[in-house]
Amino acid sequence: MIELAIYDMDRTITRTGTFTPFMIHAALRLAPWRLVFVPFAALVMVAYVLKLIERKRVKELNQAMLIGRNVAVAKLAPIAESFAEKIMRHNVRREALVSLAENRAAGRRLVLATASSRLWVEPIAARLGMDDIVATTAIKGLDDYVSHKVDGENCYGPAKLRMIEAWMGLEKLDRSQCRIWFYSDHVSDVPVLEWADEPVAANPHHDLRVEAKKRGWTIVDWD
Rank of each mutant, 00 (worst) to 15 (best):
E3D: 14
E3R: 11
L4I: 11
L4D: 09
A5G: 12
I6G: 00
D8E: 07
D8M: 11
M9T: 01
R11V: 08
R11H: 13
T14M: 03
T16D: 14
T16I: 14
G17D: 15
T18D: 01
T20Y: 03
T20M: 02
P21M: 14
P21T: 10
A26G: 04
L28I: 10
R29I: 09
R29Q: 14
A31Y: 04
A31I: 03
R34P: 15
R34E: 12
V36M: 13
V36P: 07
V36I: 15
F37W: 14
F37S: 07
V38A: 10
P39R: 00
F40T: 05
A47K: 06
V49R: 06
V49D: 07
V49N: 07
V49M: 13
L52W: 15
I53S: 09
R55G: 02
K59M: 15
E60G: 01
L61Y: 03
Q63P: 09
A64F: 03
M65H: 13
N70T: 07
V71L: 03
K75A: 03
K75H: 01
L76H: 00
A77E: 15
E81S: 07
S82V: 09
H90K: 02
E95F: 06
A96R: 04
L97Q: 12
L97R: 12
A101G: 09
A105F: 13
A105K: 12
A106E: 04
A106F: 04
R108W: 01
L110W: 04
L110N: 02
L112V: 14
A113Q: 05
A113C: 04
A113F: 08
T114W: 03
S117K: 02
S117Y: 07
R118Q: 02
W120D: 03
V121L: 05
A125D: 13
A126N: 07
L128M: 11
L128P: 04
G129F: 12
M130N: 07
I133L: 09
I133S: 00
V134R: 02
A135Q: 04
T136Y: 11
T137N: 07
T137L: 11
I139C: 08
G141L: 02
L142M: 04
L142S: 09
D144L: 01
D144P: 14
K149T: 11
V150C: 08
D151C: 10
Y156T: 06
G157V: 07
A159C: 00
K160F: 09
R162D: 11
M163V: 05
E165D: 06
E165Y: 03
A166K: 12
W167V: 05
M168F: 15
L170H: 15
K172D: 03
L173T: 02
D174Q: 07
Q177N: 12
C178E: 11
W181I: 02
S184V: 10
D185P: 15
D189W: 02
V192D: 13
L193A: 06
E194C: 10
D197T: 04
A201T: 11
A202F: 10
N203K: 04
P204R: 03
D207N: 03
L208C: 05
L208Y: 11
A212V: 06
A212H: 05
R215S: 08
W217F: 15
I219R: 08
W222Y: 12
W222E: 04
